[in-house]
Amino acid sequence: METENQIKEVDTHLLDLRYSHTRIKNDKILVTLTNSIQAYGQIVPVLAISEQERYILIDGYKRLAALKACGRDCITLELTDAEEHDSLFTLLAQNNERKLEAIEQAALIQELHGRFSSSFSEIATRLGRNKSWVKRRLDLIESLPEEVYRAVMTGKLSSWAASRILVPLARANEQDCLELTKKIIKDPLSTRELVQLYKHYGKSNRTVRDRIIANPSLFTKTTKEQDEKKSGKQLNEGPEGKWFKNISIVCHMLKRLKATSEDVLYPNQDKHNRRRCQMWLSDAESLIVELKKEAEVTA
Rank of each mutant, 00 (worst) to 15 (best):
291 L>M: 08
174 E>M: 14
132 S>H: 05
176 D>I: 00
38 Q>Y: 01
235 L>S: 11
142 E>Q: 07
204 S>K: 05
199 K>W: 04
58 I>D: 02
148 V>K: 03
120 F>E: 09
205 N>Y: 04
272 H>Q: 13
282 S>G: 09
152 V>N: 03
70 C>F: 04
242 K>T: 14
270 D>R: 05
270 D>A: 08
88 L>K: 04
209 R>D: 12
223 T>G: 07
127 L>W: 10
224 K>H: 07
124 A>P: 07
23 R>L: 08
121 S>M: 09
209 R>M: 05
255 K>Y: 13
130 N>F: 10
112 L>G: 04
132 S>I: 09
118 S>H: 09
90 T>R: 15
274 R>D: 03
258 K>G: 10
234 Q>D: 14
132 S>C: 10
66 A>I: 15
46 V>G: 03
163 S>Y: 00
115 R>C: 08
175 Q>D: 12
4 E>A: 13
25 K>T: 07
169 L>D: 07
164 R>S: 12
156 K>I: 02
285 E>Q: 13
1 M>A: 15
106 A>V: 02
58 I>H: 00
191 T>R: 10
119 S>T: 15
280 W>L: 12
289 V>Y: 07
162 A>G: 01
230 K>R: 11
36 S>M: 12
254 L>A: 12
187 D>W: 01
125 T>P: 00
103 I>N: 01
41 G>D: 12
1 M>V: 13
189 L>R: 10
47 L>C: 07
220 T>V: 14
9 E>F: 00
97 E>T: 10
97 E>C: 00
291 L>V: 06
208 V>T: 15
127 L>N: 13
46 V>D: 05
114 G>N: 09
118 S>M: 12
102 A>V: 05
293 K>T: 15
268 N>I: 00
135 K>D: 01
298 T>I: 12
240 E>Y: 09
190 S>Q: 10
165 I>A: 07
211 R>D: 13
41 G>C: 04
40 Y>M: 03
109 I>R: 01
145 P>S: 11
70 C>V: 11
267 P>G: 11
149 Y>G: 08
81 D>G: 14
207 T>W: 03
56 I>Y: 04
120 F>Q: 05
121 S>L: 09
227 D>L: 06
75 I>V: 04
47 L>P: 00
1 M>Y: 11
237 E>T: 13
150 R>V: 11
129 R>M: 13
214 A>F: 06
10 V>I: 15
41 G>F: 01
89 F>M: 13
92 L>W: 08
152 V>M: 02
146 E>G: 00
175 Q>W: 11
152 V>Y: 00
219 F>C: 01
125 T>N: 14
35 N>P: 03
100 L>S: 04
76 T>V: 08
99 K>F: 04
188 P>K: 08
90 T>E: 14
261 S>G: 02
137 R>D: 03
146 E>K: 13
136 R>D: 11
14 L>M: 13
68 K>C: 07
270 D>P: 00
138 L>K: 00
31 V>W: 02
277 C>V: 14
184 I>Y: 02
296 E>D: 10
263 D>H: 06
238 G>Q: 05
218 L>T: 14
99 K>V: 03
12 T>H: 09
253 M>N: 14
60 G>E: 05
171 R>K: 07
181 T>M: 06
86 D>Q: 12
166 L>V: 00
288 I>K: 07
57 L>M: 07
11 D>C: 03
